[in-house]
Design a protein around this nucleic acid. Structure first.
Lengths: 225, 225
DNA sequence: TAAATTTTGTGATTTAAATCACATTTACTA
DNA sequence: TAGTAAATGTGATTTAAATCACAAAATTTA
């Protein structure tokens, strides 16, 4: 299936900086693919051959730690996926898996590199994106290791509401094992804390459906630890 | 004091990709400054105005977490310092402090941006550097949170020997509080583990002087956790 | 070089959270 | 729709590591 890059509103950042000729080149050298929830998009340990752009949906970035699969973060469209692992190493250093049904655009690596070469503005935007992501990782890692579970789970719920779904009512995109891997807690601890929040009327929880009743409280718990 | 960028062997990566004109421009717009052990080079919360290149010495990168100052990593010359915080945000999101006496080259931000624009190769090298650093951060963070203290301290000692000093005998560049902040452990735990390693003849420790007696053991402890 | 400060060592106690164990609910699939 | 598998809830127990408390070195500085 053919798509027109210039009309891809999701690609705004990149497209705005591209010339007509570059756009045509991009049109000729990309492939849009759909993935179902649970499908692997990038697999740790395999060769990285394409630049990946997430057009629609939600994915998790995760890597094999010494003991368990660490989920690093949730990312929603539109965004590039795994630039660091695509450029930083021939072999993928982490995995990316669809958490909802998603639409992915694979871009040929050579073409992408040519874009970087020919277009400073584009290249600079990519540098900025990489920098911002790295800053966020540092912050995230410091929180995860310093806060205790309650704080991290509260923070995760606030992030889902504010950043991912932009709504105080949503369905948890991960199960409790995965939430544990993301915030560094056991499945049981996640369960206990969520139940506690429900009991304290900070959230309303039915199955995976969450409604935040007292965001202030959550933010407070997230801050204090 | 004036230095000649083209002769700065520390800057090899960047310099190789620069034209004569760019080099001259760099020569006109940089300042080499010496710092003593303990001096702040970049301060979290202040404006980021210059690109910083570490010519000589060892520094720590650290940021204010919810509870304590988290040390993210040790970095040794030659390398750029804090590119993510310089480009990713107007305000520095982390600090960099000298751990030994160091020599720093401050490069004007505008000039650096012009280099990025005019020189694709240079720009691409910076992208690669950012990518590799981010991959390393992920790995580091996963280790820190999944391994227990013994494993992390063993890993830290191996890293000092293999990456930082390239020698199995060295002086700890951080005190035990700082080591704790780096590997997420209390000062007391660091002390206990180091003493244990010494008692078990895995290392020889006199004050901060360390000699690794059984690197295999250390690597094993580091791997298993 | 003596006094003050910082750093380190080590035991006793506490604690957050992991693990274990099992019941219960929810979601697949045959 | 029954039957199996996956996910969740919850108490009891264990554990790694933090915290507390204080002594002893080591380093700084007055």
């Amino acid at each position: 299936m053919k798509h027109n890059c210039s009309s891809c509103q999701f690609n705004a950042l990149a497209v705005n900086t591209l010339t007509q000729r570059s756009l045509e080149q991009l049109n000729e050298n990309h492939a849009v693919v759909s993935f179902s929830k649970g499908d692997a998009i990038i697999k740790q340990g395999t060769f990285s051959t394409n630049v990946v752009f997430l057009r629609k949906g939600l994915v998790k970035q995760h890597l094999t730690g010494p003991y368990y699969e660490q989920i690093v973060r949730l990312v929603k469209a539109p965004t590039y996926l795994g630039l660091p692992t695509t450029f930083g190493d021939k072999i993928n250093q982490y995995s990316i898996t669809a958490v909802s049904d998603v639409e992915i655009c694979f871009i040929d690596m050579k073409v992408f590199k040519e874009l970087l070469e020919k277009n400073h503005q584009f290249s600079y935007e990519i540098i900025l994106e990489l920098c911002r992501n790295e800053l966020e990782s540092f912050r995230r890692c410091a929180n995860r290791t310093q806060k205790q579970s309650r704080g991290n789970i509260a923070g995760f719920l606030v992030e889902l509401a504010d950043k991912i779904f932009e709504k105080d009512e949503f369905t948890l995109p991960l199960n409790q094992v995965e939430i544990g891997n993301l915030i560094d807690a056991s499945r049981e601890s996640v369960s206990r804390v969520l139940t506690e929040f429900h009991r304290d009327k900070i959230i309303l929880m039915r199955g995976r459906n969450i409604k935040i009743l007292n965001k202030n409280s959550l933010e407070l718990i997230s801050k204090n630890g």
